[in-house]
């Protein structure tokens, strides 16, 4: 397989930042707008996959080790479980931050309103940890499959 053309590389470089920003927005605003950790994580992982397709496996693998992805995924999983365990004063998965006045502790007015980032208690934190987990997990799978394609296909990429 030959190297992708300059057009593919340029368009991928242009599209990558907005896709990344959109994915991070979907993760961080999961408690206000449609979306959440899983969906935003898939968007971010697809943005990195775009770079993988455009610039080749070797280029990406030099900057991003597979073991780092495992660490990020473990951080996400442990954060999710420990947030669930911290609510154990009442029940598992108790939302102990909602309405406490602490970080993310405001209660919005009832009914439809524009929303406020500083609400919803543990939900944004859980969204972030699930998002990290999905980004790292999906991209680790894509990266390993790209390695397999490179070694099986016999090409340079």
């Amino acid at each position: 397989m030959s190297e992708p053309s300059k057009i593919v590389k340029t368009i991928a470089s242009i599209i990558f930042p907005p896709t990344m920003v959109f994915g991070i927005y979907v993760i961080l605003h999961g408690h206000l707008t449609p979306g959440g950790g899983f969906q935003g994580g898939a968007v971010v992982a697809s943005a990195i996959t775009l770079l993988l397709v455009a610039f080749g496996t070797a280029e990406i693998a030099r900057r991003l080790k597979e073991s780092h992805l495992s660490v990020i995924e473990s951080i996400g999983a442990l954060g999710f479980i420990s947030l669930a365990l911290l609510g154990l004063t009442a029940t598992f998965f108790y939302n102990f931050l909602a309405g406490s006045g602490f970080i993310f502790g405001r209660i919005p007015p009832f009914g439809s309103n524009p929303g406020d980032m500083n609400t919803a208690g543990t939900l944004p934190l859980m969204n972030i940890s699930v998002g990290l987990k999905v980004i790292a997990g999906l991209f680790a799978v894509v990266l390993v499959l790209a390695f397999v394609a490179r070694s099986k296909g016999g090409g340079k990429r």
Binding site: H31, L32, G36, N95, A98, G105, I107, T119, A120
Partner: peptide, 8 residues
């Protein structure tokens, strides 16, 4: 909305 504080 009252219990969790999330608009979504």
């Amino acid at each position: 909305q009252n219990e969790t504080g999330a608009n979504n």
